[in-house]
Design a protein around this nucleic acid. Structure first.
Lengths: 411, 411
DNA sequence: AGAGGTTTGTAGCACACATGAACAAATATT
DNA sequence: AATATTTGTTCATGTGTGCTACAAACCTCT
């Protein structure tokens, strides 16, 4: 529950004070937010359940739900007897027509989706992206086209906000891409560009795909209900996201959770970041393929082959996974000591190869008996490749959920 | 500046729902908390400044400040003309008689202080602790005695809450010491023990000294006003604390920020945690002394000698610091990639030797040009050895500041 | 020295919101 | 069919903040 971060904390910076004083209106905003967030995250609930969960009085819940229904976020279905005594309570559910636009910019693909409240995907499109990337303009034209197709398919949806996942570093205070080496982008105002590409003029939030994949996993995936989670995903690069006590680690310039360049092996290979033995060089796709005797730059085809070989019991493939698993374990140890998480979720390459890395990882953990590692479980990603896109949707929803009436329709 | 964390988030766990609904009374609690927190953190302010900072109306501020004055937290001094036009606003300041008890349990010393609102130290006592530790009972007898002396000296103080800093791992949900190897403690219910030792039956919070030192630095020290800070302190062990977006990293069981056992050197020395090349073994006191050709177990005397030699330009001492500095830099890189902090504050050994490690650290950072490292500044601790004790006081104040009326006096 | 402008404190009223009690409605149980 | 239980609805109530006058205290300009 509850990582609808207070928008105040994240947005303001510098001189402007916190404006920490609250008045009656923010009280109602908070209660509307609580109820809508609860239904969005946990699914339909009866009005009495809402009351129990929030601690609000019956009459208050009625008023709040009624308002959220009027503006198109919730709907109430007729009460159905459930076998228990007492008058049945109407069931409250989302109106999935209230939706957001989600974008994903990967190295080799682009994706757009319209996602309704409650997390239902109303429409979705994915397109390949040329490996050389093509021009930046071409990318935005493609995104705009995909967005139009998605909106046509989900033509009854009302778009409230938008979120963008990108394989690169984002200063999310400004929405600017600080650096996306694998895309060849730098200093791009991605939010604005995406907005004009698809003709959406509402709020567009931009984040790193690692954080967004974790967002998705923590709302509807492998880390559901967890407040302390580390997410690691290896493709060409190694990305990640961190949820600590229900808050996403963002950092001063929004560059937190960049675990790809953790130094794990001072004697390792030189990374293009200038250092030796980065996490990325030890456990990334290229190194893994090279260890298995496959083409390091082979991309999806080669990784599929690698997984197939491991599944067939090929020793070299299994050993390659095991070696990566041990380095992965070392990185996990570092992260576990700093965050003391409940779970580590593995995505990308190590989701497909989860069976072949989980034991080496657990061996590394077992070698070190330290309280921060107690009860730590390593699990594979639940949502897989869909995670960043779904996370972008959840990011967009965060703004809506934090202040529903700010996005209310007039009808 | 707002790391009076909402007590709700930290305390509840498991099945009990968030009770996210809020009512008028919590509204007032929040506003009282905002004002008191502001004065406690930032010092005296005029009533109109309070209004500007919180966004509350003049009449609301008057009522809130009046209530906080009645119950003994604030006081208003007569308005003084300041040269600007308009009626002068009364200056609001804390009543330092409202105070907390702060405890510190170090390997070689014990300390107690009475600290008033606003951070004024009203009384303070420190005593050596036998290196073998003596019996646990003896430690608590000593703490009780020091506490009594402190309370006698500050006899007009009204103790509201207490905080304990300990050189060990604490599950702060329960207040239990999970493991304090350097003290030889395990599974001790420290909060309860300290309470009965000094006859205080209010709320006693217990945390690791690293987090608490950072708390102090972030409120009144080298990291004042920063929302993203990493604190590293090396003594015998290496401890630390992390503040990310204004929230202290605590982890699932409260064991977050345990940076001492970050793996930095797979070819390093074996650590008593079972691993090779922990941060602690590479940059801790013993290794540093050994590198300088001094007695690794010499304690304070030897470290003082080391600093003196470095100050005299002794090559071996300087080289020892430089080597540690490079490993320190590597650890800082790891932490900076994950947190993207604004500052890294160095305490303990590397505060005294700051001048001799800062350059090697910055060289390591410079070798890696990565956006997460941009603008990162390495600074020495401001509060030094006093930090953990002052941080324990701030921890205790957190509870008071979050709900002032819950600690109100009747007079 | 006095008038006018500016900022702030104070008091009273208005407004927004959540609450709780009382009653009605819908279901299960006996 | 009667009773118990749970919930929706309505309305009066209480709490808390905001706003508008008006008074007080200060500065500046003439």
């Amino acid at each position: 529950m509850g990582h609808a971060e207070a928008s105040v904390g994240g947005e303001r910076s510098g001189t402007a004070r916190a404006q920490s004083g609250v008045s009656s209106s923010s009280l109602r905003r908070q209660n509307l937010s609580s109820i809508l967030t609860m239904i969005h995250m946990s699914g339909p609930a009866s009005r009495s359940e809402i009351g129990a969960a929030t601690g609000l009085a019956r009459s208050s819940v009625a008023g709040l739900v009624g308002e959220l229904e009027t503006v198109g976020f919730l709907r109430q279905t007729r009460a159905v007897p459930d076998g228990r005594p007492g008058r049945p309570s109407p069931v409250v559910d989302v109106q999935p027509e209230s939706a957001v636009l989600a974008f994903e910019v990967e190295v080799d693909s682009l994706a757009v989706a319209v996602v309704g409240l409650g997390g239902r995907v109303l429409s979705q499109r994915r397109a390949d992206r040329a490996h050389d990337g093509g021009s930046v303009d071409q990318t935005f034209r493609d995104l705009g086209r995909l967005a139009n197709e998605c909106q046509s398919e989900a033509d009854h949806a009302r778009i409230l906000a938008a979120g963008v996942a990108i394989a690169g570093l984002v200063d999310h205070r400004s929405g600017r891409v600080v650096s996306a080496p694998n895309l060849g982008w730098e200093g791009l105002d991605l939010g604005t560009e995406v907005g004009s590409a698809c003709g959406f003029d509402g709020h567009i939030a931009v984040r790193n795909e690692g954080e967004l994949a974790l967002r998705a996993e923590s709302v509807r995936g492998a880390a559901q209900g967890c407040r302390d989670v580390v997410y690691l995903s290896a493709k060409v690069g190694v990305g990640g996201g961190i949820l600590s006590n229900g808050h996403f680690i963002v950092g001063r310039a929004g560059l937190g959770g960049e675990v790809g360049h953790l130094p794990v092996n001072p004697d390792g290979v030189r990374c293009n970041c200038g250092a030796l033995g980065c996490f990325e060089t030890e456990v990334g796709e290229r190194t893994l393929l090279a260890r298995a005797g496959l083409d390091p730059n082979g991309g999806r085809g080669e990784t599929a082959k690698l997984v197939a070989r491991a599944s067939d019991g090929d020793d070299q493939a299994l050993e390659a996974f095991a070696t990566s698993g041990r380095w992965l374990g070392l990185g996990i140890v570092a992260l576990a000591h700093t965050f003391n998480p409940e779970k580590v979720v593995l995505g990308g390459l190590y989701r497909s190869g989860f069976a072949y890395v989980v034991e080496p990882i657990n061996e590394v953990l077992a070698e070190r008996s330290f309280p921060t590692l107690d009860g730590l479980s390593i699990v594979p990603s639940d949502l897989g490749d869909a995670a960043p896109l779904l996370g972008a949707a959840e990011l967009a929803f965060d703004h809506v959920l934090a202040d529903p009436m700010g996005f209310a329709s007039s009808d």
